[in-house]
Computed example of a mutant assay.
Amino acid sequence: METQQEIDYKRIADAIEFLRFNYKKHPKLEEAAEQVNLSPFHFQRMFQSWAGVTPKQFLQYLSVEHAKEMLKETGATLFDTAFETGLSGTGRLHDLFIKVEGMTPGEYKNGGESLNINYSFADSPFGKVIVASTDKGVCHLAFADEGTEPALTQLKTIFPNARYSQLVDMSQQNALFVFSQDWSKLDEIKLHLKGTDFQIKVWEALLSVPAGGLTTYADLAKKAGHVGASRAVGTAIGNNPVAFLIPCHRVIKSTGELGQYHWGAIRKNAIIGWEASRVHTS
């Protein structure tokens, strides 16, 4: 059975999709509310509770003009500073607390034979997620759009020889606090990732893009030390094993268009707008 948070997010996602496809017509609040079967009053209240801003303000954060502005700010000076210091440059704690440890060649090749993996399911502002961890940190976080069983099956295909326990541990809790932005309870987030050296370099470069900021494939390739490898970087981004924490949603086209996303373009719009609204209203 869907939780109320899942139901609300689906309504938000439907509203975002409607607004994105119809923004040139300047749809009224009543029209957007009708799309999600709510009264204008309840829709406005639900949307502001979720995003912190009005639907109209939220849509502005998803515009090409806003994206280009963010690319200028976070794709150059702030991005370089963030990459060198490990800080976000905007006062966000998200990136400061995340550190990556790659798996050993043995762990990588044997399908996690020596690993004990804890996993659990949780609600997020963007739908239900599965989060899994080893004794060294979070190894997997994905949106469970098809339900809990398919999500668990997918996890087990990545580490087919590991031992699994449905158990919430501190690594998972720290990761999930990021969604609520309750950073007062957040210790350092550690990631234990299965990936090639190239993939891990790309994922580490992604961690330097501040919350509310954006970058391009070309800039990310440069920061990962592989100038001109935009296509390979795109593949590495698509193989990101930890949704949201490694912010592949912050990579967009150089034109300012938001583009596609492993977990759906509408979810990407929702996350980008949600982060931008918190940066601009904090």
Rank of each mutant, 00 (worst) to 15 (best):
V227Y: 12
I271E: 00
G238V: 07
E275Y: 01
G213T: 02
A211C: 14
Y217A: 04
R267A: 04
E204V: 13
K268L: 15
T216H: 15
T235Y: 07
R267S: 04
A243I: 07
W274H: 12
R278S: 04
L207W: 08
R231F: 13
I252K: 13
A205C: 08
D197I: 11
L206H: 05
A265P: 06
I272G: 00
A221R: 05
V209W: 05
V227P: 13
A224Y: 07
T235E: 04
R267I: 01
G264D: 05
K253Y: 09
S208H: 12
K223D: 10
K201F: 06
G256D: 12
I246W: 01
S254G: 13
T255A: 08
N269C: 12
V202G: 00
K201D: 10
W203P: 00
V242K: 03
A276C: 14
L245C: 08
H249G: 05
G273A: 07
S277G: 12
N240V: 05
H249E: 06
L245D: 01
T196F: 04
L220S: 02
R267C: 04
Q199G: 03
L214C: 10
I246M: 03
K222A: 14
I252L: 06
A236S: 11
A265L: 06
E204A: 07
N240D: 14
V242I: 11
F198D: 02
V233W: 04
T235G: 06
I252N: 02
S208A: 12
G228D: 15
H226Q: 13
G273Y: 01
V242A: 02
P247W: 05
G228I: 15
Y261M: 07
S277H: 11
A265W: 13
N269F: 11
V209N: 04
E275K: 00
I237Y: 02
G273T: 03
W263Q: 09
I271G: 03
V233H: 06
S230G: 11
G228Q: 14
A229C: 14
V251S: 01
G213R: 00
A243W: 10
W263D: 11
V251R: 01
I246E: 00
V233C: 08
N239F: 05
I271Q: 04
T215S: 06
Q199A: 12
W263H: 09
A205M: 02
I266Y: 09
A229N: 13
P247A: 07
L207I: 10
S254V: 13
A229Y: 15
T215M: 01
